[in-house]
Each structure stands twice: as structure tokens, then as C-alpha cells.
Amino acid sequence: MTDIMTLHYLVVAAALFMIGTIGVLTRRNVVIILMSIELILNAVNLNLVAFSRLYGLHGQVFAIFVITDAAAEAAVGLGIIIAFFRNKETVNVDEVDLLKW
């Protein structure tokens, strides 16, 4: 058994990022698209913390800022979902075509 290097963490983060990308591009439900965006943000966070093990504390501080941004983004995104559901009675993204003229 080999030691765990930084590269191992980077590969896990890349896998999570790819899974999140597939989720954003293929799902129809807006709530699950937002969850996939959270997956992507978490993959980036894992990268930041893994590099902070190498280069000092700054990665961890930046990971905290990323978590803050994720909270703000989730609040606004879910507010938009509620407003949209009140108007159109659906949460499917391919039915959001009001601007598609």
C-alpha cells in the first residue's frame, strides 16, 4: 500500500467535478441541478484544502469563502425556484422558455 499523495485528492476532486458537470448538463429538475453545482463547488474546495496542506493556510481560508458563496448562491437560487414554481407549476428547466423568442 502506497502513501496518500496530494495527487490522490486531486483525482477524487476531478471525479466529483465531472459527476457534477454531467448532472448540470443532463438533469431536468432545477433542484438537482443546484445540487450538482454544490458538488462542483465541493470538488473545488477539496482541491483548495489539499493544496493548503502543501502551501500553508491560505487554501483553507479561501475554502471558507467558497462555502460562503455557496450558501448565498443556494439561497438566491432556491428563491428563484420558488418564484418560478409559483408562476409555472413546474421545476423542469426545459420548460423555462420565457426568454426564448
Binding site: A71, A74, I81, D94
Partner: peptide, 24 residues
Amino acid sequence: IMVLFLFVIMLVNLEQNIREYQFN
């Protein structure tokens, strides 16, 4: 954040959405 997500999932009624096709 996950409590927020679960709240919104409960708020938007997804009964008929579950029966629809989930992927585009």
C-alpha cells in the same frame, strides 16, 4: 444548506414531477 434544499423540495410539490422523465 441541505436544510434549505429540503425545505424547497417540500415547498414545490413534486408529486407529478417524479413520474416524468428525469433526463433531457
